[in-house]
Amino acid sequence: MRVALQIGHRTRAAPVIVLDVPPDFHQVPLQTETETRTASQLQLLEVMGLSDPAQREALSLYLEALAVRLSDGTVVGTAFCAVELDGHPSTATLTVALHPTATADRGLAVMGAAEAMRRDGRYATVDIRELGVHPAVTGMAERPSVPGDAASGEVGATLREMSVLVPVPGHEQAAMLTMSTPCLEDWEVYETLLLDIARSLQVQQTHPDFIR
């Protein structure tokens, strides 16, 4: 699956960022047009093979709530996978943001972001890497849920996440991708996958389908 993110204004001439994402990931529909979004949501429900009306309704409402939540801000896409790994069910979430960097100097953006992430202290490890032709920053964190994190006040699952910031060549923007999973035993699979997705980043001048 190729995911395209629009840079700047939504016109056919505007360049887009393209990421190669495995087809196991299902994208949460975030289109701004209600009809298009609803159609995509229904399609997703079909793909998921849900037959229980309560489940379908709940997922539909939840998808819509997420779409509303993401209708502004820098997060431009979120997708989830529900797969079987080594005989057990496994799930992960891929979330993508486009973030202005105020510089076309990719090295400066990477070094600055790495230092900012280290100083912030939220990440257990922060590294600068070369992902193919892209300099990038990776930060890994484990977020144990705490009482109060959920509306019911209960303790939820621990989520491990890795964020990758990849400056977009030739633009004062960076793609920020986060892979998050409660399935800690499958972490290596998802970590490798995230780095591969980040490595696949390309800027295209054409106008393929895009998230939003």
């Binding site: 997420l66 939540r69 997060v75 979120t78 989830f80 891929l94 989520l159 920020m176 892979m179 998050s180």
Partner: peptide, 16 residues
């Protein structure tokens, strides 16, 4: 942005 990504990731995980 990083915090927002983490939050959205957590919310999307609920779908699973």
């Amino acid at each position: 942005t990083a915090i927002a990504l983490g939050e959205v990731a957590g919310l999307t995980t609920v779908i699973s």
